[in-house]
């Protein structure tokens, strides 16, 4: 082992001194050189091997628990495993995916899928708009800026389980704040989380989630606003643009990166709303209007029915949904050299 290392080292050193000699000369031939290098040498590229003790253990853990598990999940989704004994890896088919599309009715896959999309879009949009407005206000040279910012971001540090309990109490028709406030103007009491109208149920959830995460959008936008050079504001002012026009024409277009990255992260938080719904409704069956793919998957796979393979298939769809958003984002980040 040691001799291999020392050989590698000598090899590296010679390569390196070659490179150092050439740095003032032909960079073009350097590129050609590395292109023609053998595959083996590329893989044994000194620093990759030497730095392996640092990244490899972490990589193996992530490889096993994240990527290994994802692949395994796809495989299980092709079986008809229901939790007894071992899955049969002999015969694969797409039966589970076909079943998914056929399901209709109140607690069906289709219902959960539609709810997921509506929740993600509504939650993300409202958070972004609200967060941007708050960020613009906070950016107006206020006193105690840090205190305000800290308070606005505070709900995000709480567990979904904790915030669910708080909103259960806020929405309660038995003396909760929201219904008391509505009572003052003569409305209610309204049963929000188990309202007969599924849209009201979902809106109540989205409102609570916006409360928890709009502070995050605010912080991201605030950083974006701070990164815009002062001259741009000055130029707009000199041009005589009104405040609204200045933000609309000059500022918001420059917040594209902030918007994209905040949306992606918010969607990921939105998909984690399982914890919130599980705690709010106390069991694995939320109200029908709030049944999203994450809750649906856990219920079919680990509930009484124990349709494990079917649950895996639902999870594959959920994963595909998440990565259809994340992959383009990562690609664009890669393109702009931010990774």
């Amino acid at each position: 082992m040691d001799s291999v290392r020392s050989w590698l080292r000598r090899r590296i050193d010679s390569v390196r001194s070659e490179q150092r000699l050439r740095t003032d000369g032909g960079t073009a031939s350097d590129a050609v050189q590395s292109e023609t290098g053998t595959g083996l040498r590329r893989y044994l590229d000194s620093d990759a091997v030497e730095s392996a003790p640092f990244w490899l253990p972490a990589f193996l853990l992530v490889g096993l628990f994240v990527y290994g598990a994802i692949v395994w999940n796809v495989v299980i989704s092709l079986t008809d495993y229901e939790g007894l004994g071992d899955p049969e890896y002999g015969s694969f088919d797409l039966e589970n995916y076909r079943l998914m599309l056929q399901e209709t009715g109140s607690y069906s896959f289709t219902n959960a899928f539609v709810n997921t999309i509506v929740l993600l879009v509504a939650f993300t949009l409202v958070c972004l708009v609200f967060g941007l407005v708050v960020a613009i206000l906070v950016d107006r040279d206020i006193r105690f800026e840090n205190t305000f910012r800290t308070i606005y971001l505070l709900p995000m540090s709480l567990s979904f389980v904790v915030t669910a309990k708080m909103w259960l109490w806020m929405y309660s028709s038995n003396g909760g704040f929201v219904n008391r406030a509505l009572g003052v103007v003569g409305i209610g009491p309204v049963n929000f989380i188990r309202n007969p109208d599924p849209n009201v149920q979902l809106a109540a959830i989205v409102f609570a989630l916006v409360w928890q995460f709009s502070g995050y959008a605010m912080v991201v936008y605030l950083a974006g606003l701070r990164a815009i050079p002062d001259e741009h504001f000055e130029a707009a002012r000199v041009d005589g643009a009104s405040l609204v026009k200045m933000y609309w024409r000059v500022v918001i277009p420059q917040l594209r990166t902030a918007t994209v990255s905040a949306s992606v992260v918010l969607m990921v938080f939105g998909l984690k709303a399982f914890d919130f719904l599980r705690a709010l409704y106390g069991n694995d069956t939320p109200a029908v209007g709030t049944d999203i793919l994450p809750t649906y998957m856990v219920r079919v796979a680990f509930g009484d029915a124990s349709r494990i393979a079917y649950g895996s298939a639902v999870a594959v769809v959920l994963f595909a949904l998440a990565f259809s958003i994340v992959l383009p984002y990562l690609y664009s980040e890669y393109r702009r050299g931010a990774l």
Binding site: A58, F59, V62, F65, V66, Y67, G68, A69, I70, W72, N73, I76, V264, V268, L271, K272, F274, L293, P294, M297, V298, A301, F302, I308, G311, S312, V314, A315, V316, L318, F319, A322, F323, V326, L327, L330, L339
Partner: peptide, 15 residues
């Protein structure tokens, strides 16, 4: 590594 941040937990629960 980075893509791993965005994996929904449901996608790995059964395994």
């Amino acid at each position: 590594f980075v893509a791993g941040i965005f994996v929904p937990y449901q996608a790995v629960l059964v395994p």
